[in-house]
Design a protein around this nucleic acid. Structure first.
Lengths: 214, 214
DNA sequence: CATATCTGATAGCGTAACTATCAGAGTTGG
DNA sequence: CCAACTCTGATAGTTACGCTATCAGATATG
């Protein structure tokens, strides 16, 4: 396993990605070129293998587009301060919400859910939450203020966990990677766990052994 | 506003969607046809307008594909019991995880996060969470058990809020709609609020007035 | 009655993410 | 040494998706 040089065929079989796909990632600047040993020969190392796994995590598990993955990987590689890396990761996990398309009252309602929070006006999450609020009320689900508030509490807990995990890393590279991976995969982790909890709780309240109507 | 019959042009301008797009939704069976008044004339009502808004909520805000939106809308329209509607909504919010691609030990770790929860083996959320766990450890972030546990707690809180909101509705149609909308938009709401909380908490711990390195 | 608008049907477009093919150079087992 | 295999970058093609443009004919309107 350790420090194995390999050629493209082995990199492909070990990563599970097709040769053509790996070359595509190279063209897209997601993956650095191999170490050249001739005009048309190159060797790859464990770093390439790990990088491909990271790309797969971001794209297939995290649902990022290739373009978003490139931005995020560039942020990891860079020497940017962590807050900037955080911001890039945040902006990449879902396309930006047009700020002018979000009504002010929706923003006000969302801001009321975050008392004392220090959040900038153009935080993409704030805008996205306000968009959801607006959509929700526009569909006619008007009396869900409690639902929003409880989501804000859950989100605060998760964000605390994120930051604690960040504090546990020492090196910048490790911090940057956990920022990115945690931001991208955290959404999916939460949504999976929420669905499991939904099944658990709904089975408690709606036992339904035969075909019931509730 | 109330009970207005309208033709396609007005339906288009009031919903903000292009005529061709609305017709596309009709062809895709997301939207029922209008009330015919002649061989090539039809009228639409407020129900159509609301339906278009729901489609937009599911696709643009919730990120569902047209095919997934169709399944979800069919579930709302049907007289299926609520648990089935829940299941369809859950399966539609992100494509299924191949159960054979998730290692048993990742499933075991995830199950340990949900002690006493009554969750079926093929719950898509359980599989997705296990996939995230596997990806996370595969990338080398091995000591994040606390992070996962705290996410499970946050997810439980959110799911409780979901179920309470469900209980607050009386009619099946209202329950079905909140199940679907809550499942689809809940993910996005949480992720937005989490990003806002991340900014708040990271600004507390990493004040960084000049360009710092942490 | 001239112009505008409606209808369903069909075909086309733009983006994204691969995937297939190619020609030429390098590697390898007998 | 050589035939078979594999590597390289470059380019073109494919598939899926979500619209979008166009058309011909019927209907509505001032």
């Amino acid at each position: 396993m350790a420090e194995a040089d390999m050629k493209m065929a082995e990199l492909s079989s070990r990563s599970g990605m097709a040769v053509a796909t790996i070359k595509f990632y190279q063209r897209q600047n997601l993956l650095p070129p191999g170490r050249r040993t001739g005009p048309n020969q190159a060797l790859y190392g464990d770093a390439h293998l790990g990088r491909i796994r990271l790309i797969v995590a971001l794209t297939e598990v995290g649902g990022l587009t290739v373009a978003a993955a490139r931005r995020v990987l560039e942020a990891i590689d860079s020497e940017l301060p962590l807050p900037e890396t955080f911001e890039i990761a945040q902006h990449s996990v879902s396309e930006a919400v047009d700020p002018t398309a979000v009504p002010a009252d929706a923003l006000a309602h969302v801001d009321a859910l975050m008392p004392g929070w220090h959040v900038s006006d153009d935080n993409p999450g704030r805008l996205a939450a306000a968009q959801v609020f607006d959509t929700f009320t526009g569909i006619g689900q008007v009396d869900a203020a409690g639902w929003f508030r409880r989501y804000a509490e859950a989100a605060f807990l998760a964000a605390e966990a994120d930051i604690d995990e960040l504090d546990a890393r020492i090196e910048r590279a490790a911090k940057a990677e956990i920022v990115v991976v945690g931001t991208v995969l955290g959404d999916r982790l939460f949504s999976g766990l929420r669905r499991a909890a939904q099944e658990h709780l709904s089975s408690l309240r709606y036992p339904a052994p035969p075909a019931s109507e509730l």
